[in-house]
Simulated scan of single mutants.
Amino acid sequence: MRKTIDLQLFADAVRGKKIVYLYRLKKDAAKNAATALAFTTENGRTTSKDADTTETKDGTIRTPGAAEVEITATSILAKGDTLIDSLEDAMINDELVEIWEANLDEPASSGSNKFKGKYFQGYVTELEKTSNAEDMVEVSLTFGVNGTGEKGDVTVTAAQQEVAAYVFTDTTKTGA
Rank of each mutant, 00 (worst) to 15 (best):
E70A: 13
F39S: 05
E162A: 10
M1S: 15
A73Y: 03
S131E: 13
D12T: 14
L37E: 01
K27G: 01
R24N: 08
S109M: 11
I76K: 07
T169F: 09
N132W: 03
A108G: 09
A102H: 07
T82I: 08
L87A: 05
F168H: 10
G80P: 02
A51C: 03
T74P: 03
A108K: 04
G147P: 05
Y166I: 00
D58V: 02
T74N: 04
A36T: 12
D12H: 15
D85H: 07
G16Y: 09
V167G: 00
I5Q: 04
K114I: 03
G80D: 05
E126I: 04
D12A: 15
A158S: 11
R15V: 08
A30P: 08
N32C: 11
S86M: 11
T35F: 04
G144T: 15
L7Q: 08
L37S: 03
Y123P: 04
A102T: 11
I92G: 01
E98P: 01
L141V: 05
V154F: 03
L9S: 13
K173R: 11
V69A: 01
V20P: 01
L25G: 04
L22P: 03
A165S: 15
D50E: 13
V139G: 02
P107L: 06
R15N: 02
E42Y: 04
T174N: 12
G175W: 04
E101L: 12
I92T: 14
A102P: 05
Y123C: 06
Q161E: 10
E162V: 07
I19L: 07
A108I: 03
P107Q: 05
E95N: 11
K17E: 10
N103T: 09
L25R: 15
D170R: 09
R24W: 06
E126Q: 15
A29C: 08
D94P: 00
A13Q: 06
T172H: 09
S109R: 11
I92F: 05
V154L: 03
D52M: 14
A29I: 15
A36Q: 00
E138K: 11
A29Y: 10
Y123R: 12
A11R: 14
K118N: 10
V69Q: 01
I76M: 10
L141F: 06
Y119R: 13
K116E: 11
E128W: 00
A78W: 00
